[in-house]
């Protein structure tokens, strides 16, 4: 890549990026820092960036809240398992559908696409889940959301961009389709697989409605079911200060931060896969 550093062009580039970062970060810092504020300051100050008085009260309150912590743990299980299952279904199917020579490929693609646009709706799906005896089990969530057609189509087009010669070469070497996928295609598709995994992970992390609908035991619900209720439903005065931890709006902000944190933390680790372009190239070359 051209390594020459151009003062004007790069200067403008970095200036634009700086403005973008400020545009994103300023409103967000309100959420972040108000979670470290006292109730008093939150109520009286309107928009502010740095609190006058710092406190970790809100985080202490959340740690004391058994419902929050339980839901948080559930989310880790649901996300890990849900993502693994989704990836399994999606990768195999997307790989299969990426074969241009496959008979019936067009029909299958249409079948998939159609479900992106037409949905049966909540009640028929609930009845199905009930008929399959999946109510109250996490499988209801894993299975009803196993494949997102959108991500399947994206993955398919990633796979389809592989040079066909690669496949031919592998076949010459006596490689079966499964080996071809696992040994050659997948390792070369790390950026796209990581992208799809991230998309699934985030979708599972953010899902709340299926749990409320399919699981009668609210102790099994994920964090988003809790958070939504926490942020949206009226406060009926049932949440009070516990011990020395006071309840108030900063606790809600802290809940937003804590809920988002694991996904924010894992992103920098995944980034290296998006920035690596050498994998495909090294084979082609």
């Amino acid at each position: 890549m051209g390594k020459k550093f151009n003062l004007v062009a790069d200067g403008i580039l970095y200036l634009i990026l700086l403005l973008i970062v400020l545009f994103i970060a300023l409103p967000f810092s309100y959420i972040l820092f108000s979670s470290f504020s006292t109730n008093a300051e939150y109520y009286s100050r309107g928009f502010y960036i740095l609190p006058h008085k710092w406190t970790i009260n809100a985080y202490g309150y959340l740690a004391m809240n058994e419902n929050f912590m339980q839901a948080y743990r559930n989310t880790f299980v649901l996300t890990a398992c849900g993502t693994a299952i989704s990836l399994g279904f999606t990768l195999f199917m997307a790989y299969g559908l990426s074969k241009r020579w496959l008979r019936g490929r067009r029909l299958l693609n249409m079948l998939v696409l159609f479900t992106m646009i037409f949905h049966g709706g909540m009640i028929p799906t609930y009845l199905l889940v009930s008929e399959l005896h999946l109510l109250n089990s996490y499988w209801s969530i894993y299975l009803t959301g196993a494949i997102f057609p959108f991500l399947l189509i994206i993955m398919r087009s990633f796979f389809a961009s592989f040079p066909p010669e690669l496949e031919e070469a592998a076949r010459m070497d006596g490689c079966g389709e499964l080996q071809l996928l696992l040994r050659i295609v997948l390792p070369l598709s790390i950026p796209s697989v990581v992208t799809i995994a991230l998309m699934y992970g985030v979708a599972h992390w953010n899902s709340y409605f299926q749990a409320i609908l399919y699981l009668n035991d609210s102790a099994k619900w994920p964090i988003q079911s809790f958070l939504r209720q926490f942020l949206l439903d009226s406060d009926t005065g049932m949440l009070r200060s516990v011990g020395s931890y006071e309840y108030g709006p900063p606790v809600k902000m802290a809940a937003v931060i804590v809920t988002a944190l694991p996904l924010l933390l894992c992103y920098p680790f995944l980034q290296k896969y998006f920035n690596k372009g050498m994998l495909v190239g090294s084979i082609k070359g």
Binding site: F89, M93, L108, T115, F118, G120, P124, T144, L178
Partner: peptide, 19 residues
């Protein structure tokens, strides 16, 4: 390889479409 995914679409997407 396609089969499990296809099964998913038929069972969890097409059957409820009757609704």
């Amino acid at each position: 390889m396609i089969f499990p995914g296809l099964l998913f679409f038929i069972v969890f997407r097409y059957i409820p479409m009757g609704g």
